[in-house]
C-alpha cells in the first residue's frame, strides 16, 4: 500500500494515463520498454534519481509518470512513483491544480517565489532522494521557450549537494520517446558549481529535443 492513502488514491489515476498514452500518444514500443527497464533498474538500486524533461504538452505532469512504469507498477511499488515538482499556480493543471497538489506526490514551489523558497524546495527534493524516492521535474520549462529555466536551480543545487544523484532525461511528445542518463560533474564549488550542473542537464534535455526535431 502507499504510505499516504491520498497518494494511493491519486495513483489510481495513473492507469487512466496509461490508457490515454496507448490510445492517443502512442509512444514507440521499443523506446517505451527501454525507458521502463531503465527506470526500474535505477529505482531498484535505490540511488538518488532525478527525472528531468521539458514540457511538450499540458498534461506532462500526469503522463510522464505513466511512461516510467507499467500500469499498476506504482500501486505495487508506491515509493518508486516519482514526486513531482510543480508550481501551485501552474497554468498546465489549470483549475485542477489545487486537487492535484493535494492528492499527488507534489513538491510545490512557486516559480517567482524568490531564492529562499527555491532553497527550501531543493531541501525537500534532497530529502525525498535520500529516502530512495525519485523526483520528477521540468527544469527547462516549456520546449518552445529556450530562455525559461523555472526549476534549473533546483537541479543544480541538488546535484551539488548530492553528487551521487543520477539524472534520467526524458524526451516525450506524441509519437516520440527517448531517454538518456547523465551524471554531471563539476570542478567548481558553490554557486558556480550549481549553475554548471544545472546547465549540463539543460543541455542534455536540449540535445534530446534536437535529436527528435
Amino acid at each position: 500500500m502507499s504510505p499516504d492513502p491520498l497518494h494511493g488514491l491519486s495513483a489510481c489515476a495513473l492507469p487512466l494515463g496509461n490508457a490515454w498514452l496507448a490510445l492517443r500518444e502512442r509512444p514507440p514500443r521499443a523506446a517505451l520498454r527501454a525507458l521502463r527497464a531503465r527506470y526500474r533498474e535505477l529505482t531498484e538500486q535505490g540511488e538518488p534519481l532525478l527525472v528531468c524533461a521539458r514540457h511538450h504538452r499540458a498534461s506532462d505532469g500526469w503522463l510522464l509518470p505513466c511512461l516510467l512504469a507499467a500500469p499498476g507498477a506504482f500501486l505495487l511499488h508506491p515509493r518508486r512513483r516519482p514526486w513531482i515538482v510543480a508550481d501551485p499556480r501552474s497554468r498546465f493543471a489549470g483549475r485542477l491544480a489545487p486537487l492535484w497538489h493535494r492528492l499527488g506526490r507534489v513538491i510545490s514551489v512557486r516559480q517567482g517565489a524568490g531564492l529562499f523558497a527555491h532553497i527550501e524546495a531543493a531541501l525537500g527534493i534532497q530529502s525525498k532522494l535520500a529516502g530512495g524516492e525519485p523526483v520528477l521535474l521540468f527544469p527547462a520549462g516549456d520546449a518552445d521557450d529556450d530562455e525559461d529555466e523555472p526549476y534549473s536551480y533546483l537541479v543544480g543545487r541538488t546535484l551539488e549537494s548530492m553528487p551521487a544523484t543520477r539524472v534520467l532525461c526524458v524526451r516525450a511528445s506524441r509519437g516520440a520517446l527517448d531517454h538518456r542518463v547523465v551524471a554531471p560533474t563539476t570542478k567548481h564549488s558553490g554557486l558556480r558549481a550549481v549553475r554548471e550542473l544545472a546547465l549540463a542537464v539543460r543541455d542534455a534535455l536540449r540535445e534530446l529535443d534536437r535529436a527528435h526535431s
Binding site: G112, L115, H118, E149
Partner: peptide
Amino acid sequence: QINSARFID
C-alpha cells in the same frame, strides 16, 4: 521576471 536560474547567473 527573473527566475531562480537567472538569479544565480
